[in-house]
Amino acid sequence: MISVIDSIGLSVIKTVIMVRDFVVLTLRTLVYTFTPPFRVSDIFKQLYFVINESAPIVIFCVCSAAAVTIIESSFHMKIIIQNDALVPGFAALLILRELGAVVSALLVTSRVGAGIAAEVGTMQITEQIDALKMLGINPIRFLVVPRLIASVIGGVVLSILANLVCLYVAMLVSQYKLGHSAGSFIVAMRAFVSMQDLYFAAIKGACFGFVIPLVSCYFGFRCKAGAEGVGLATTNSVVTISISIITIDFILSWIFSYFY
């Protein structure tokens, strides 16, 4: 009994310490983000990495998601209300408010988040981070800040891209599959969504993009020696980011609901 309480207590303490360390990392990163020197070329390099690595898979997956959304919703609407005139509106609502931002963020997590955790973790266990410190280079400024800025910008860009591609594909699918013309799709869609929804999707993209590199770098810096260490850092960061994205999505959707 005592040992159970002990181990619960221990894991609570460990969690508290981890959260504290993560908050410290976040605050320090923010301070360095807004104070010189700025490593502009590193930011562009990272931005290229984020967009170049993620855009193809985001576009591919979002196309499938769009097709599924249209086909599924028309199937069910036909059963329930014997009519699929509302499909474009509901599909656009679902895409703009949830699918576009979340699907693209989860894909960026699996590609970029995992990549950063593995890279930083490897640098930690092969003493590359110590080598930076010895040159008086701050690892947070050198590694985290450029990735954070790139990921926030990339998050916004990819979220908007995902949404637009997704809507376009949804329109094509409903044209060929359901016989809605492009014009009627847009008219039906406009009744449900507005430009504001796209802005909110961009805000979601920025918030998800903010979390991804911070969590990945956090686990990378804590990486323990050995190949399992890097594997564990990568897995932990992908799991943690995915849970965070879903949670943040819920919170943001709730906040945005006051503006609709």
Binding site: T122, I125, T126, E127, Q128, D130, A131, M134, L135, G136
Partner: peptide, 27 residues
């Protein structure tokens, strides 16, 4: 001070030449 690390700590995204240039470029 300079150091040869036990695990070498070479920057694996940089070439041999860039590794040596790195400290000079940075500071």
């Amino acid at each position: 001070m300079g150091m040869l690390f036990q695990k070498n700590a070479l920057f694996d995204s940089l070439t041999v030449g860039e590794n040596v240039a790195f400290p000079m470029r940075e500071i």
